[in-house]
């Protein structure tokens, strides 16, 4: 009798399981789409070169990355040194990021050589690495998302070329010696200038410091009073140089082409100190960098290089609908 009862419970159990299975099958087929493919959480660490109040470039990169993260199931962590020159700090942060065991790291290497071993460390642990903004002495990472700096440099030269003549004396203010962005932009610029390249009389480096750029520009103009064209290859060098030119009362007399945008630069563009500025798309860079890292982390194929783009802006095109958004990143915090 006991055995019979056991059979009964088994029967009930089997029946329940059968019905459940049937319902499950029924709804698996019809309900698959609406559940949404439950994407696994992807953890990504973003390490920009530096983050501080005077430089909006990296905050835009971070904002772009955040936008991309919000579209997917991504947990984004940002580790940023305060200044681009803090190579050691950034290297420590890379190690810290490795400790966190994320699925991918998006790294904007601060140094052409010194960052490389740390990038290799990331690769050795199997964490996917996406390189942002600048490349290093050797190829690293599965994908490079950067402005095509050759092209950006070329744009600067191309814009200025029609205004040049044999009397033009050219000075260049670069950010950091040996950094790939500086090297490539210079290369592109020289390519566009063609024979006018011979008229370059001075090339100086400001170590990505606004104030040093100011001083160096002053020195440059004092030493070479003939200089009437200055190209600046990044934001800090552009702002500092423009300030120096303005302060020396040479605004409008020395033709200037800047790089990247800051409020200061835009004001100098409005007031005519700058003839034009070439602006990168840091937001796109961050967005694309994170998108690539996400794809790589999910073992999808990613292209070797992705271009995030650049635009040349003159006084007339500052307030076009598109450029307004690019030059004046709307941030709630700025207003409060």
């Amino acid at each position: 009798m006991l055995e019979r009862n056991n059979h009964k419970y088994i029967l009930v159990l089997i029946v329940i399981v059968t019905i459940l299975a049937a319902i499950g099958v029924f709804y698996y087929s019809s309900g698959e789409s609406e559940e949404g493919s439950s994407e696994l959480l992807v953890r990504i660490v973003l390490i920009p070169k530096g983050l501080n109040d005077s430089n909006t470039f990296w905050s835009d990169v971070i904002e772009g990355a955040e936008m991309a993260a919000s579209e997917r199931n991504v947990e984004l962590t940002v580790l940023a040194p305060s200044f681009e020159t803090e190579v050691e700090v950034q290297n420590k942060m890379i190690e810290e990021a490795i400790e966190m065991r994320p699925d991918a790291i998006v790294l904007a290497p601060s140094d052409y050589v010194k960052t490389l071993p740390y990038a290799r460390k990331v690769e050795e642990t199997g964490i996917k690495l996406v390189i942002l903004d600048s490349v290093m002495a050797e190829e690293a990472g599965c994908c490079v998302v950067a402005t095509d700096n050759l092209k950006a440099g070329y744009r600067m030269g191309e814009y200025m070329k029609p205004y040049l003549n044999e009397d033009s004396v050219i000075g260049i203010m670069e950010h950091i010696k040996g950094v790939s962005t500086a090297v490539e932009r210079e290369q592109g610029l020289l390519e566009a200038l063609g024979t006018y390249g011979d008229q370059i009389v001075d090339v100086r480096y400001c170590d990505s410091s606004n104030d040093k750029s100011y001083e160096e520009t002053k020195a440059m103009l004092t030493e070479n009073p003939d200089i009437n064209v200055i190209f600046c290859l990044n934001e800090d060098s552009a702002s500092g140089a423009a300030r120096a030119v303005h302060d020396m009362g040479l605004g409008g007399k020395v033709a200037m082409v800047g790089f990247d945008s800051s409020l200061e630069e835009i004001q100098f563009l409005e007031s005519g100190v700058f003839n034009a500025i070439v602006v990168q798309r840091p937001l796109n860079m961050g967005y694309l960098g994170l998108s690539m890292a996400y794809q790589a982390a999910r073992s999808q194929e990613v292209p070797r290089t992705v271009e995030s783009g650049s635009v040349l802006i003159t006084k007339e095109t500052i307030y076009t609908t598109e450029n307004q958004k690019l030059l004046f990143p709307f941030r709630e915090n700025d207003k409060e």
Partner: peptide, 15 residues
């Protein structure tokens, strides 16, 4: 024309 869009900049830059 977009007056407000949370990803206005991405839209303008064509992404």
């Amino acid at each position: 024309n977009l007056i407000y869009h949370p990803k206005q900049r991405l839209i303008y830059s064509g992404l």
